[in-house]
């Protein structure tokens, strides 16, 4: 049976504020229960630091149940850590071994400036949404069920795309710092459903344009985003964004 308590060493990016020069600091923790989540492990570290009169490590978190998209850091080169399909808050210490050395860095990309330590500003993703990731038709009250028939498969796919929690791991993992998986998911969830159609063309054009303006890189179809997405969003949604964009560029009025 695996050990219930493990000793680990941490190498964490510490940076006072957006302007300052950050650096890695080393810490060691002993007797970490493997039942703790990764963020709880950081809580333990911060408790120790505070008791020693040191500044705790700043990191983002909110729901701690993998649905809000606030948490996230790169652990040993992988956004949200080594387990596929998991947010950092849902990653548990049982996935690590006694004596492991963990290098913890913030998500890095030009449009994600570091606020402090592991906390980054993901406002660029909000700005991307503001460029078209919504519907502005007034859909009124709840319509009668089944007035618009949507095939189950289509609904499922729209749901898969809508599972995006906007954590930014796709950008963090992309060798080119591209936000195409995020944009693809946002365009897809609307492109698949009737409510999204009226503004579909504008949406694809405007979101891609804004994405470029915000300083994200270009998609090279490396598929790294798909592998690090905690919601396992498929690059088929990037293909759909490309399709929507090309159709819009060629045929819109």
């Amino acid at each position: 049976m695996a050990k219930q308590k493990i000793d680990i060493t941490l190498q964490i990016w510490r940076q006072e504020n957006p302007q300052s020069q950050g650096s890695f600091q080393h810490y060691s923790l002993s007797g970490i229960s493997t039942g703790l989540s990764f963020l709880e492990m950081l809580d333990v570290l911060n408790e120790n630091l505070t008791l020693n009169g040191q500044e705790p490590v700043a990191f983002d978190h909110d729901c701690r149940e993998g649905i809000c998209g606030m948490c996230g850091a790169v652990v040993n080169g992988r956004p949200h850590g080594p387990e596929p399909g998991t947010t950092l808050c849902q990653l548990h210490m049982r996935h690590f071994k006694d004596g492991d050395h963990l290098v913890i860095e913030p998500f890095r990309a030009r449009p994600f400036p570091i606020e402090r330590d592991l906390v980054i500003d993901r406002g660029s993703l909000d700005q991307l949404i503001q460029a078209g990731g919504y519907v502005s038709v007034n859909t009124g009250g709840t319509p009668e069920a089944n007035t618009i028939a949507i095939p189950r498969e289509t609904a499922e796919q729209a749901m898969d795309a809508a599972a995006c929690i906007g954590c930014g791991a796709c950008v963090a993992s992309c060798p080119n710092g591209s936000a195409m998986l995020f944009a693809g998911a946002k365009v897809s969830q609307l492109a698949l459903l009737p409510q999204g159609h009226p503004e579909g063309r504008e949406r694809a054009l405007n979101m891609v344009k804004r994405m470029d303006e915000l300083g994200f890189g270009n998609c090279g179809n490396e598929r790294e985003c798909e592998a690090s997405c905690p919601k396992r969003i498929s690059i088929r949604h990037i293909a759909r964004l490309n399709r929507e964009f090309i159709k819009a560029a060629l045929f819109s009025e």
């Binding site: 060798p175 300083g215 270009n218 598929r223």
Partner: peptide, 22 residues
Amino acid sequence: LFLENSQARPVRYQVERSSAQR
């Protein structure tokens, strides 16, 4: 595209580990 991509992450990661996807 290459030049833009090389500017999209000004500070590189200490540990770069790709998934098996690349």
